[in-house]
Simulated assay, not measured.
Amino acid sequence: MARTAVLRRLKWHAARVLGVHDETATARTICLEVRDWPGHVAGQHIDLRLRARDGYTAVRSYSIASAPFSEGRIEITVERLPTGEVSPYLTQELMVGDYLELRGPIGGWFVWRSGQTEPVQLIAGGSGIVPLMCMIRSRALANSTAPFRLLYSVREPGAIYYRAELEALSTRPPFVTTQYAFTRVAPNDWPRPSGRIDRDLIASATWPASVGATCYVCGPSGFVESVADLLCSAGNRQDKIKTERFGPTGLPE
């Protein structure tokens, strides 16, 4: 009911496509100039609406990937789903100069604000990296000194979003310590066999519970539930674990 009430107050905005670029073989980042954009907080998402010539409409939710820009620009990263109605168009047909409709920003729980100073643990599964990347970029924009760590679970190296940017952040300020978990194919020289995030990886790659980090976990529902349980078992307080679940269609639930 609360989400419905909020959406009724949000208006649809016209958004012009300023640029597109591929992150992986199946994911594309889209830069949008949004008319009358009110601004957003790291971790929020938008609803995007497409209209067909016959009047049919489809609405999908996408997390915002970019830090807040004063000129009303945002970026989203879309993973192409083979059976999807919307993602194939956005990742294969959408062109610079096209217009879309969107409303937002939406969300107030799964957010990071620049006034937060405590350590932050980010844990992403697949495309769940998108809102967490927004947090990383927002931290840099705000010149925040809050320490960040990222644990990123992907199928294989070729599925990593924002790879060059994450590699750069591991070697220069604002530093983000990044650890990968490859679930299907790991690099030949990788010190850990392929597999899902488990208790040992949580212990070695995330902040100790004693530091009181705020944990943000985003990805498919099963992934989020498993990781949240592991974090609790490691001693993290439940109220310090914030989650965003993606359903079977890739939509935030």
Rank of each mutant, 00 (worst) to 15 (best):
A234M: 08
N188G: 06
L201A: 10
S61Q: 15
R80F: 01
T57K: 06
H40Q: 06
H13V: 02
T117K: 14
D47W: 00
L230S: 01
S66Q: 12
S114Y: 07
H45A: 00
Y161D: 13
Y161K: 08
E101A: 10
D54K: 08
G250A: 11
K11E: 10
G222E: 01
V176N: 09
L251D: 14
F182K: 06
N143R: 15
G128M: 03
V224H: 01
T77S: 15
A14T: 10
A27Y: 01
R184V: 11
G247M: 07
R53C: 07
V78H: 07
T117P: 01
R192P: 02
R172W: 00
I197K: 05
R60E: 12
A186M: 09
E253K: 12
I106W: 04
E23W: 00
V185E: 11
S194A: 15
G19H: 14
V224P: 00
L50C: 10
S233L: 09
L50F: 07
P105Y: 07
F148W: 08
I64Q: 10
S210E: 15
E118S: 13
T77Q: 09
R113I: 10
G195R: 05
L100Q: 08
E118P: 01
A2E: 08
L90W: 00
Y99T: 04
L102V: 11
R149L: 02
L141W: 14
A209M: 09
R149G: 09
S70F: 03
D198Y: 00
G104Q: 14
A124Q: 05
Q44W: 06
R192A: 03
K240S: 14
E225V: 06
P193W: 10
P88Q: 07
G115E: 13
C31E: 13
I129F: 07
R16G: 03
M133R: 12
C134D: 11
F110Y: 15
V224W: 03
T91P: 10
L100G: 02
V20C: 14
H40W: 02
I123N: 06
A146P: 03
W109S: 14
T77I: 12
Q121T: 15
A58R: 02
P119C: 08
H13N: 07
G84D: 07
Q92K: 10
V20E: 06
A140T: 11
Y89A: 04
N143Q: 14
S226R: 04
L231F: 10
S144I: 13
G97T: 00
D98M: 01
M95P: 00
E165P: 06
G247S: 12
D54P: 03
Y180A: 09
Y162S: 07
T214Y: 10
V41K: 07
S144N: 14
R3I: 09
R28T: 14
P208M: 11
V154F: 13
T178M: 08
